[in-house]
Design a protein around this nucleic acid. Structure first.
Ligand SMILES: [Zn+2]
Ligand SMILES: [Zn+2]
Ligand SMILES: [Zn+2]
Ligand SMILES: [Zn+2]
Lengths: 149, 149
DNA sequence: TTATCGAATGATACATTGTTGCATTCACTG
DNA sequence: CAGTGAATGCAACAATGTATCATTCGATAA
């Protein structure tokens, strides 16, 4: 695992601990798998990885529960258009994740743009709608993959 | 079916025809079901409705192919966070749909905000990313449902 | 220590959503 | 009428997600 990922993982674990949320070995295992990956992983991909790491079988519901937990804690995010999950690098900030998802290489880059969420929330407010969760995912081609094609 | 929906349906059919895209009876049936619904419908919901309307069985792959077609034509949109589909009211304009999805009543309202797509596209451009498709979905509570709770 | 309690996980079965591959039909063209 | 490509039918299957109940485990309080 790259050093940066290692830092991100430890930081995420700390964030949870400070909140009093239990960071069990299995939860850490899933989060570590997310940090170790260079692309979004599906729940069953994660199951395979964690099963290997722990050298035993893990039931699917456990994986899903753990993913729910990690997403609630803001240390992971579900990418709806991929049915997949990524680690979030800055759980300490309260933010909506915005993703650029490359159709060719599968990479998902998170970008930060508070203006986007503000803009949409204002629209919503005008309609009396209270936003609880934002999904903003752009699919297309990343720079390297454009050259390749 | 409300008059407004009826107009929308006819308009969508025309848009497709003008483009030379084939609007077959089955495709119309699916689109009509979408326009008749007051909420996003899953692929299998749609299958049930169309099976009733045509009084025969329809294989799942047909429904999915037709939904792909309708989405490509811009007359329907998939809501990723619901695994469901809605009719789009203005296929003639080239736009990214932005949805407010109520967690309580299931309603999905489309709002228009060109600024949002522009803002994100600019961010993407800066990173050399070419956006092909945008997914913007806000979940939360609509005005009526806030009162109820 | 021991009883109790709630959170987390295990285990099984099942539900929902989406796809692959190939056959068939159908409308249009020459 | 024959040839062609698009659309649909069909069967099986893959992938994703959930419901339910049992079990484990650690913390807390008697
Ligand atoms: Zn984030
Ligand atoms: Zn790429
Ligand atoms: Zn739209
Ligand atoms: Zn509502």
């Amino acid at each position: 695992m790259p050093r940066e990922a290692s830092r991100g993982l430890n930081s995420a674990i700390n964030v949870c601990r400070l909140r009093g949320a239990q960071m069990t070995p299995l939860r850490q295992g899933v989060l570590k798998a997310l940090w170790s990956a260079d692309r979004p992983l599906g729940a069953y991909d994660l199951r395979d990885l964690v099963e290997k790491a722990f050298d035993r079988q893990i039931p699917a519901p456990s994986i899903y529960r753990i993913l729910d937990f990690l997403c609630e804690q803001g240390v992971a995010t579900r990418i709806e258009s991929l049915n997949a999950y990524v680690a979030c690098g800055h759980p300490e900030r309260d933010h909506a994740c915005v993703f650029l998802v490359c159709e060719a290489c599968g990479d998902a880059t998170e970008i930060e743009n508070p203006k986007v969420e503000k803009l949409i929330s204002e629209d919503a407010k005008r309609l009396g709608f209270v936003v609880k969760h934002q999904v903003v995912e752009m699919s297309g081609l990343c720079a390297p993959c454009q050259q390749a094609s």
